[in-house]
């Protein structure tokens, strides 16, 4: 195989490692397939939410519960974290190999933004509960609580993974497993953006419309 054409576009695994590029390709593709499976989960949860919109059982509805301002800020934070993650991947590709690696800085920033998102989500959910919006209250709220916190849980899991990868960088440097792991985490991170946009459109904007 021609080593140049077989190279993974997002990685600098070295030109002599055709097989490593092939494996990275399979790994990222496999993870992408996994995300497609996850997409079905979120799609169904969104569908469930829509079918449950009227199942209020006398409880509060979207207009009583949702506020757009925190959602807007959360959206900004999450989208910015995707940008910083993208910067991390770019600096990974052109990693100078110095001690103070820009990739780590970008990853750190991404982690902060991700955790900030999760924290804001948690605060919102707590406020929702205080307003009588507990998941046990109605079918509508059950659907909401299965969807939005699941997304936040995904972000939290992605953050945990990010910490684990950072620890691997600390231990092994930027070796091939770390690089492919970062690529896969990237797929997840951007995927969660897409899902969040869908949630904002359907759950918050759709619910308030």
């Amino acid at each position: 195989m021609n080593t140049e054409t077989g190279r993974h576009p997002g990685l600098n695994l070295g030109s002599g490692h055709a097989e490593a590029h092939g494996e990275a390709e399979a790994l990222v593709f496999g993870f992408w397939v996994f995300m497609m499976s996850d997409l079905v989960t979120f799609g169904l949860l969104l569908a469930t939410y829509v079918t449950m919109l009227d199942n209020l059982a006398g409880g509060p509805g979207p207009k009583d519960l949702f506020e757009l301002k925190p959602v807007f800020i959360e959206t900004l934070v999450l989208l910015t974290s995707s940008l910083t993650y993208g910067m991390a991947i770019l600096s990974l590709k052109h990693d100078p190999g110095r001690r103070l690696r820009p990739v780590l800085a970008w990853l750190g920033l991404t982690l902060m933004l991700g955790l900030a998102f999760v924290a804001m989500e948690a605060k919102d959910l707590h406020a929702l509960q205080a307003k009588g919006g507990a998941p046990q209250r109605s079918g509508f709220l059950s659907a909401f609580w299965a969807l939005v916190p699941l997304h936040a849980l995904h972000v939290a899991a992605a953050a945990l993974w990010l910490v684990a990868i950072a620890a691997q960088i600390w231990r092994f440097g930027l070796d091939t497993p770390v690089k492919t792991a970062l690529l896969r985490l990237g797929v997840l991170w951007h995927f969660l953006d897409v899902v969040w946009i869908a949630i904002v459109s359907v759950v918050f904007l759709g619910g308030l419309a």
Binding site: A57, G58, G59, A134, Q136, R137, S138
Partner: peptide, 9 residues
Amino acid sequence: TAKAPMAPH
């Protein structure tokens, strides 16, 4: 049959 139950709290 479909009545809303009392919330746990």
